[in-house]
């Protein structure tokens, strides 16, 4: 198996406040990697430092053997990205956004197929801002898949999706994984992470507090269920205890 993503000793702070500290990650081809943690644990900062939209203070990032700063154009021919915040023009339609995205890549996928696969092809002529939260989320996953990427980054992909839509999206992603796609995702939704992620890393205040498989995470914790184990690692549970 090839290493697709390698992060070594990544650190980033904002005005003295440490957001990510000394993080090491390694993602193998055809696997799903989950970067987990509470809001503000440093997931988005990590993903942005990896993609080069933020500059890490120290550390080395390599994706598909390339440096995201120096080899940006070459690298992003093969990388799909879905950011947490919606970023599109005010009056743009679904089909226009897809066409432009398709035009950016040399080997783009057929976006109509993808829209169909995600069940939003009937919305092609609608304005993006008129879509429901779930439809918009699906659209941004479609945009991330248009380059026919070797690796795809999904930041909080299940936000705004209802249970049924989440299940559909997970199904599509695990099919794509079966075809060799490498997936890097962040989530604070433990639903399905357990079944899908080959490797997880749990962040707390910018530091990795667990790195390994879901099974190991449960075994190393005092709990039997992954969700409980996750809360224990990410320290979300402590507050609940205090309330009791």
């Amino acid at each position: 198996m090839n290493e697709i993503i390698s992060v070594k000793r990544l650190s980033k702070s904002y005005g003295g406040l440490s957001a990510v500290q000394d993080l090491n990650l390694s993602v193998m081809q055809g696997t799903i990697f989950g970067l987990l943690g509470a809001n503000g644990a440093g997931k988005s900062t990590t993903i942005e430092c990896m993609l080069g939209t933020k500059k890490p203070d120290t550390g080395r990032v390599s994706i598909l053997g390339m440096n995201p700063f120096r080899q940006r154009k070459q690298l992003f021919e093969n990388v799909g990205v879905q950011f947490q915040e919606a970023n599109y023009q005010d009056k743009v339609t679904v089909v226009e956004l897809c066409q432009v995205t398709q035009s950016l890549y040399r080997h783009a996928a057929d976006y109509e197929e993808l829209l169909k696969k995600f069940g939003i092809s009937h919305k092609a002529k609608s304005m993006v801002k008129e879509l429901s939260g779930g439809q918009r989320q699906k659209l941004f996953i479609v945009l991330a898949l248009i380059p026919q990427p070797k690796v795809v980054f999904l930041d909080e992909l299940t936000t705004g999706l209802d249970a049924k839509a989440r299940r559909e999206v997970w199904k599509i992603l695990s099919d794509l994984k079966g075809k060799g796609l490498t997936i890097f995702l962040t989530s604070h939704f433990m639903d399905k992470v357990e079944a899908l992620c080959d490797t997880i890393c749990i962040l707390r205040k910018g530091k990795a507090v667990f790195y390994g498989t879901v099974k190991e995470a449960v075994a190393d914790s005092p709990y039997d269920k992954f969700e409980d184990a996750y809360l224990w690692y990410s320290d979300e549970e402590v507050n609940d205890d205090e309330n009791i």
């Binding site: 939209t53 992003f76 990205v81 950011f83 599109y88 023009q89």
Partner: peptide, 17 residues
Amino acid sequence: NYRSRKILKRFKVTPVS
């Protein structure tokens, strides 16, 4: 406007110059 709406940021993670 494209910068503050993060549209340019989305373009940054594509091959476009």
